[in-house]
Computed example of a mutant assay.
Amino acid sequence: MKSARGFLKPCFAVAGAAAVLAAVLGWVFAGAVGAWAAPAGVALAALGFAGSVQAVAAVERIDLRLTLPMALITYAVKLMIAFFALWTVKSTVPDALLPFAWGIVGGAVVWLATQAVWAYKAKIPYIELNQGS
């Protein structure tokens, strides 16, 4: 899985660029509140995806068959965290809700698109190769 985690650096780089763009767009469309809320949403999405990768990689070291259950568990946890974050933003700074939500959506889209491009270009063997022979 270590070689398959090579997409983390490009995904974080693109998410960083998306956060800068989100700050600019947030400022243009929602003022100062949008300037911090939109990139915060991008960051939440990026950290959620990276956390999932780390959790699945950790459980893969224990047993490969646990990767699907861990992926599903992390997906459910990410959704709960995102909904809790949205509720918290709505409760504390209602004006930030829309830019924050759009930041989450934008962050997820750029992360998944970057990961898909990386996977398309990557040379990952689909069979286990003997390392010792």
Rank of each mutant, 00 (worst) to 15 (best):
K2E: 15
A4H: 14
G6L: 13
K9V: 12
K9S: 11
P10A: 02
P10Q: 03
P10E: 01
P10D: 03
P10I: 02
F12H: 06
F12E: 09
F12K: 09
A13P: 01
A13I: 10
A13F: 06
V14T: 15
A18P: 00
A18G: 08
A18E: 08
A18N: 05
A19Y: 05
V20K: 03
A22E: 09
A22P: 03
A23T: 01
A23G: 02
V24R: 01
V24I: 10
L25P: 02
W27L: 06
W27Y: 10
A30Y: 08
G31V: 06
A32P: 05
V33F: 00
V33Y: 00
G34M: 05
A35G: 11
A35S: 13
W36K: 08
P39T: 03
A40Q: 03
G41Q: 07
G41E: 05
G41V: 09
A43G: 02
A43R: 04
A46L: 03
G48M: 01
F49W: 12
S52K: 07
Q54W: 14
V56K: 02
A57D: 14
A57W: 07
A58G: 15
A58Q: 07
A58E: 13
E60Y: 13
E60N: 09
R61M: 14
R61T: 13
I62G: 06
I62E: 04
I62Q: 04
D63Q: 08
D63M: 05
T67F: 12
T67C: 11
T67G: 07
L68K: 15
L68Y: 15
P69M: 11
P69N: 10
M70P: 04
M70N: 02
A71N: 14
L72W: 13
L72Y: 15
I73R: 05
I73Y: 01
A76H: 03
V77H: 06
V77I: 13
L79C: 08
M80S: 04
M80W: 00
M80I: 05
I81W: 03
I81V: 08
A82E: 08
A82C: 02
A82P: 03
F83R: 09
F83Q: 07
F83G: 09
F84P: 11
A85Y: 00
A85H: 00
L86V: 04
L86Q: 01
W87S: 10
T88H: 14
S91K: 14
S91E: 06
T92P: 13
T92F: 15
T92A: 14
T92I: 15
P94S: 12
D95T: 04
D95L: 12
D95K: 07
A96C: 02
L97D: 00
L98K: 07
L98V: 12
L98M: 13
P99I: 04
A101C: 12
A101S: 13
A101I: 10
W102K: 03
W102H: 01
G103E: 00
G103L: 01
G103A: 05
I104T: 10
V105W: 10
G107Q: 11
A108M: 07
A108V: 10
V109D: 05
V109G: 10
L112M: 15
A113S: 07
A113F: 04
V117T: 13
W118M: 08
A119E: 12
Y120L: 14
Y120H: 15
K121I: 11
A122P: 12
A122Q: 06
K123Q: 09
K123G: 01
I124C: 07
P125Y: 09
E128I: 02
L129E: 15
L129G: 04
N130V: 10
Q131I: 11
S133T: 14
S133Q: 12
